[in-house]
Write a protein that binds this DNA or RNA. Structure first.
Length: 353
DNA sequence: AGCATTTGACCCGC
DNA sequence: GCGGGTCAAATGCT
């Protein structure tokens, strides 16, 4: 029974990987026709290879991709680990369910890609515990960390049980600055939410002027308000190749309640960042307000002023640090018609980034 | 009732 | 042995 389920999951995963590979190949084809940058094409090729590698690893029964973990395993390679193969898909796993689970967990956390964000929020934003990044997290633990004044919270994706999403994050208040939260992300979302976000990105790319409806606004708590200053949006990506930028992008759409008229902008910002980080930093908006470069992405402050999001992403080989500053002034934005609701979209579950 | 959070215990790597 | 990360029972919330 269990075995059958696990086989079905593997098959699903395999199908998903192959489908993804096909879609990527199609994307590549279209990029060839549109004379896109070499980097972009190279990136797509990598992604395709990656998909097939993953599919092969599922087929060959190696199952847990973390098994052949060599000393040279790169962060990207650890992505091979499939959530569906995580667990008892192997016939050898009869010994002790609990033991295996635990061992896998630790092996997993060690090899999973991770990146860190520093999120600065002004008091009263109701964002304690970390800026909502669009995914639904479930807290599963909290620990006092040696030398740290504040405990560290451990969160995992809500869809871990249902969809085997292995993404986790840690949230810790900074000692130096209590208004700053350090978020450490581990693993990559493989849940539907991730694909939804990906599809939203695609949709936005296809129709930049799309006007959507805000539904999230109803979630606002009265005392909640994002207080962003005048700083522009900045995304800096260094020491990281396109693939890693893609993989480690922590951005997605906010489900966090924020002021209704700001939702569109928030998503707008997040979308641009997600698009550029996840989609190999190719310009989505070909004209201002967004100006993108391959290694330094910036958005004109005048267009972002109301949002006032200063965003820095600094990356190293396997870490990605990002700082979101949220000062206290709020001004109105010219980008008012970018209304939007994720709820309005319906996406197939097999459409992952 | 179902889901989320809390918290002490447990396990693993160093 | 210690510290970090996770589990799972108890508890709280909607």
């Amino acid at each position: 029974m269990e075995k059958r389920k696990s086989m079905e999951r593997e098959q699903e995963s395999l199908t998903s990987e192959l489908t993804q590979g096909k879609e990527l190949a199609e994307q590549l084809m279209s990029h060839l026709h549109h004379s896109s940058s070499e980097e972009k094409r190279d990136f797509l090729i990598s992604k395709i290879l990656f998909s097939y590698e993953k599919a092969l690893s599922l087929l060959t029964g190696s199952g847990d991709g973390s098994d052949g973990e060599s000393k040279h395993t790169t962060a990207r390679e650890t992505m091979l680990e499939s959530p569906t193969s995580f667990g008892n898909s192997s016939p050898l796993s009869e010994i002790s369910d609990q033991d295996c689970k635990r061992k896998n967990v630790f092996k997993k956390t060690k090899t999973m890609p991770s990146w860190t964000e520093e999120v600065k929020v002004s008091s009263g934003t109701g964002l304690d515990g970390g800026l909502d990044d669009g995914y639904s997290w479930r807290k599963y633990g909290q620990k006092n960390i040696l030398g740290a004044n504040h405990p560290r919270g451990y969160y995992r994706c809500t869809h871990r049980g249902t969809q085997g999403c292995v993404a986790t994050k840690q949230v810790q208040k900074s000692d130096a600055d209590p208004t700053t939260f350090v978020l450490t992300y581990r693993g990559v979302h493989t849940c539907n939410k991730a694909s939804q976000l990906a599809r939203v990105k695609e949709g936005l790319k296809g129709n930049q002027n799309t006007t959507l409806e805000v539904k999230k606004a109803k979630q606002f708590a009265p005392e909640m308000s994002f207080s962003f200053g005048r700083a522009g949006l900045r995304v800096k990506t260094e020491h990281l190749d396109a693939r890693e930028k893609d993989i480690f992008s922590p951005f997605s759409f906010p489900s966090t309640p924020i002021e209704s008229e700001k939702v569109g902008e928030h998503i707008f910002c997040s979308t641009m960042m997600a698009n550029n980080l996840v989609d190999s930093y190719a310009p989505i908006f070909e004209s201002p307000p967004a100006i993108f470069e391959s290694d330094y992405l910036a958005v004109s402050p005048c267009h972002m002023s109301s949002f006032g999001l200063a965003h820095d992403v600094q990356t190293s080989e396997s870490d990605l640090t990002e700082i979101i500053s949220a000062p206290t002034s709020v001004t109105n934005s010219p980008i008012g018609d970018f209304d939007f609701s994720i709820d309005d979209f319906e996406f197939p579950p097999d459409c992952l980034v």
